[in-house]
Design a protein around this nucleic acid. Sequence first.
DNA 1: GATTTTATGTCAGTGTTGTTGACTTTCCAA
DNA 2: TTGGAAAGTCAACAACACTGACATAAAATC
Lengths: 171, 171
Amino acid sequence: MTETRPSALPGGQSLLFLTDEQLRKGIEAMFFAYRGFTADPDRILEEKSYGRAHHRAIHFISRSPGTTVNNLLSILGVTKQSLNRVLRTLIEDGLVESRVGTRDKRERHLFLTDVGEALERELSDAQRTRMRAAYREAGPEAVQGFRAVLEAMMDPELRRHFNRLKEAQDG
Amino acid sequence: MTETRPSALPGGQSLLFLTDEQLRKGIEAMFFAYRGFTADPDRILEEKSYGRAHHRAIHFISRSPGTTVNNLLSILGVTKQSLNRVLRTLIEDGLVESRVGTRDKRERHLFLTDVGEALERELSDAQRTRMRAAYREAGPEAVQGFRAVLEAMMDPELRRHFNRLKEAQDG
DNA sequence: GATTTTATGTCAGTGTTGTTGACTTTCCAA
DNA sequence: TTGGAAAGTCAACAACACTGACATAAAATC
């Protein structure tokens, strides 16, 4: 059970013996876990007739208040037309405020209104609750491994975004 | 670096001190990692003008050859109409074979053809390569934690599916 | 000062993937 | 023989992505 295979060689070069089967299970775990990961917010969003795209926008605006549209675009990896559709409804509904930049007036800086903050809290509470439960069930050591593998799986550009967000707050 | 916080109490009850910030970073890691996770297959699928839905069908048919449409439906969590559209094109294109059940002739058993197997291999090779690289980078201990957290994050029903697939092959 | 580039927004059209609802066919089982 | 489950089909629709074209304002550059 807790027995481990030889995984490090004298050279310091760590060598993992990973069968295709083990890798495949990792792939399936990602698939099924992601469904769980989005399930709770999806339920909340459905009530308010929003979608995942709205959630993502809300999340990253909350995370980086005052971010520009362009910055959000590169984080989300969608076209401006796609993002704009979502942002427009959020602004119309009074969840997001778009302020013209002071230094560069071409830019729009995005902020959540109080209503937007409230929805963000509702969504992230649900998601954090599941994440917390998963962490507790898996144990403290698992959390580090989880994060390490996920980070290694990211595309370099997204990883840069991830780490930028990370640095903004605590370690 | 390798220092750990107090994470277990005498009672045997493990207690994790997780700030909202730490949980939020886990959430973002899932988001960014999933993008990387699907990036390679997406590129391959685009060439052949298929989508993720086709990939998922191919994957689970490959995983459980002879599976029925109903079983596939409960794994994928979509409507039969949605799955049917995808299956129809895969059958028309000669990637999937649908055989009428012998015991129960209402059921259709799904198999990959040689062409289907070839695409499956191409897709899963790409995905496994990234997974292998991530595992190597994160180290052997991380892999266990990764899997443990993902499994704990799944909805119970999906977890049952996951474990059923797991048991079918090696440990 | 004129030109180009950048940031943003918008309109129109298209494709994939999901949904509901209604309906049919097949066929097992009570 | 009748009820219901499994599978398939058709139609309509919605969310969310895409491309391409175009407009506007402001910054940057020549």
